[in-house]
């Protein structure tokens, strides 16, 4: 026993760092969409890296603790309440048996993470506890939480000693309704006309209501592909190429309208030209954008992308050091 789901919220799933290394099987990694908020949650409650948390999207659940626990809520501004009283985010909290955690309406961002000392104890599936809802595997019974579910909490290492610890304000992200995401142009950007590549980078795109863990879809422009003769093995859409692997974060534009950034639960390969890839350090930011938010894409080179990844890693180490 540990957590009883009184109401599930809109889409609450068990996620960890992800099921990496199975791309050859066509298995996407799943895992927390906003890695930063998820990891910092685990630091706050003193967990080993990779402990499973709950990812809470757009509208929060109501959860009753059936035993005492040490918890932290990070990510989107969706104010948590314990027994109806507002509680802080980015801070380690203690809850007692019978306490109920609920959430106010989403104010900014898109996804909150609930870390619990000891982690959410669901069976490992292919070395991960992440939920991949599209095929119904991993996490809690392969699906989003439902009313009446009961989740077990794992053995805590040092949860109690963490209570009251708080992430420094300088490290708490602010989520805006307008976001810039850095992209590496490629792998099949040669299929877009030069003018359309410029348009792609100059357009302020709007996140559509379809955006989810599979992909983020945008509207706001129309892109044209270079005319060509359909190659053997490629589909007839001008956006088609011969099938290849899709990097996480890659951007495809079926039919030239509505670019889609493929995310953690996306198909691992196919026949759409990917015109760029959102860099890993910025996918946390992407995961905190929501329907109707504005997004621009900025082209960067590999050096800048790798530096951004290194900087983020150092920031996370610094936060970890300050909390443990």
């Amino acid at each position: 026993m540990g957590i009883r789901v009184k109401s599930p919220g809109l889409l609450t799933t068990v996620q960890d760092t992800g099921r990496f290394g199975e791309y050859a099987l066509g298995m996407p990694p799943s895992g927390a969409m906003d890695v930063f908020s998820y990891q910092v949650g685990n630091y706050l409650v003193g967990n080993e890296e990779g402990a499973a948390s709950l990812e809470i999207t757009y509208f929060g659940p109501e959860l009753e603790f059936t035993e005492g626990a040490v918890i932290a809520v990070t990510g989107a501004e969706m104010p948590p309440k314990i027994n109806g009283e507002e509680a802080p985010t980015w801070e380690t909290l203690e809850v007692g048996e019978g306490d109920v955690l609920s959430f106010d309406y989403l104010k900014s961002g898109a996804r909150s993470y609930l870390a619990v000392a000891g982690g959410i104890d669901v069976p490992l599936f292919m070395h991960s506890r992440s939920t991949y809802t599209l095929i119904g595997l991993g996490g809690h019974e392969g699906r989003a939480l439902q009313e009446g579910d009961e989740l077990k909490i794992g053995e805590s290492r040092n949860g109690g000693g963490q209570v009251g610890k708080r992430v420094d304000d300088d490290h708490i992200p602010a989520y805006s309704r307008e976001t810039e995401l850095r992209v590496i142009i490629g792998l099949a950007s040669y299929r877009l006309t030069e003018e359309s590549m410029e348009e792609f980078l100059n357009t302020t795109w709007t996140v559509t209501p379809d955006a989810d863990r599979v992909g983020y879809r945008y509207r706001g422009g129309e892109l044209k592909f270079v005319e060509r003769e359909q190659p053997a093995g490629a589909g007839s859409d001008p956006a088609n190429v011969v099938d290849f692997g899709y990097p996480i974060g890659s951007i495809q534009v079926p039919g030239g309208v509505e670019p889609i950034v493929l995310m953690n639960d996306a198909v691992t390969g196919g026949g759409y030209a990917t015109i760029g890839t959102v860099i890993s350090a910025d996918r946390d930011k992407l995961a905190q954008t929501k329907t109707n938010d504005k997004t621009r894409f900025r082209s960067v080179d590999l050096d800048e992308a790798l530096k951004a990844r290194k900087d983020r890693g150092e920031q996370m180490e610094e936060i970890k050091g300050s909390l443990t």
Partner: peptide, 9 residues
Amino acid sequence: VKAQMPGTF
């Protein structure tokens, strides 16, 4: 009556 979540009404 409030919207519980963002989206299209």
